[in-house]
Design a protein around this nucleic acid. Sequence first.
DNA 1: CCGGCAGCTTGCGCTAAAGCAAAGTCCACC
DNA 2: GGTGGACTTTGCTTTAGCGCAAGCTGCCGG
Lengths: 232, 232
Amino acid sequence: MASLDRSIVANVPIFASLSPDELDAILRDARSVRYPKDGAVFDQGTEAHSFFVLLHGHLRVEKTTPQGQQIVVRYVSAGELFGVAQAMALKHYPATAIAVVDSVALAWPSTLWPELIAKFPALAAGALQTVGSRLQDSQARILELSSEQVEQRVAHALLRLAKQAGRKVEHGVEIDFPISRQDVAEMTGTTLHTVSRILSAWEQQGLVEGGRQRIVLRDPHKLFGIAEGHGK
Amino acid sequence: MASLDRSIVANVPIFASLSPDELDAILRDARSVRYPKDGAVFDQGTEAHSFFVLLHGHLRVEKTTPQGQQIVVRYVSAGELFGVAQAMALKHYPATAIAVVDSVALAWPSTLWPELIAKFPALAAGALQTVGSRLQDSQARILELSSEQVEQRVAHALLRLAKQAGRKVEHGVEIDFPISRQDVAEMTGTTLHTVSRILSAWEQQGLVEGGRQRIVLRDPHKLFGIAEGHGK
DNA sequence: CCGGCAGCTTGCGCTAAAGCAAAGTCCACC
DNA sequence: GGTGGACTTTGCTTTAGCGCAAGCTGCCGG
């Protein structure tokens, strides 16, 4: 059991530089938790009691405005560190994390973070890198929202999803978890209706293949063209 | 000279927890550089040779798409850490930093970062916090771009600018550096024309007072109302 | 096996804001 | 003190994509 944990955790970039002994020491303080599909791992605004590494499954991280508008911040896949609010000096989680399929995560009490980085300075560097790459992602998204048309943004979003959680299937690459038109809309700053229209049009052209909470990319290369603006 | 530096650097959150001796040690490796108005501190895509703390002045950080579209990522004010690409494991600066007024910064060679955080673990924690708060900002901006109308976004942008770099003047709060309509457009994902129209309308109602590269907020409270959507 | 509902599609009209075009206006520099 | 260019304003036209509305479909639970 413990060795299973160690082997999967070894692939987490933030833990990669640690020795097996160090890994075991860190894993001693973790507990493994199971989240059923549609279960919340944590809720926006609640106290940031833990930080996590996802062992298995997929999470949707979403954020709601005071006015009730909702956006999808990102999806978390196995091996990723998440819920590190405390490390950024936040008392409360700034977003909600929901399991989109049955999932399993390792959880550490947030209070342990300071000792852990004191004992393993590489952890701090790793966390900085994790947060840094998320910052990059966010800024790329701001650029997209500022300068691209909806069609390009949807293409970009699908390509990113395929890269992060794509599974090769017979006719292309399928997003490896249930995702609705509404979810895509909340990732791209548009509406359910517009996403549906775009996907329908693409399906006509054989670029994608759809279904209820299912998206398969049949021609990623052409989609990439659309994302880059050569589509129109 | 050194003591002047130490006193201003003591206000930088990331250095706040260090003792005077430690501060002096860190400052020994820094050089102070002057950037004239409109001068570049670093350029997007170039090697990330240094990281910086701004001592005096204001910088505009901007990012350009492959297609040539440009956005303003943020403004940097005195006391802020910036250019920490290397800490996030980036080889190249992901954006360009331009002095919008004559400015002075402390610069350290990026290569020093690993030793510095090894010697002063608080630095890593501080950097994590800095990057974390930028991530928060970025995500707030994504939310705005996804869910708000242009008018609300412009109101939010002005309020943020006023908070960060506002100077009390007779009739309100003035943004303390030259900023064009174009700049505001690039902060809010809209066009020069739309910003100009909005500001003109607000000027009519006495909410703001304009001018060439000059913006004064005369009624921040009402602007806040617009930002929250109670405007219309 | 069937009913109902969550998720999806599609048509239509509307509007916010972009694009285009043409004048101001102010400042800096000669 | 004048002149050119950068910055701004403003009118008009166009359009992407939103909001509303109605109907469809496939899945899950009974």
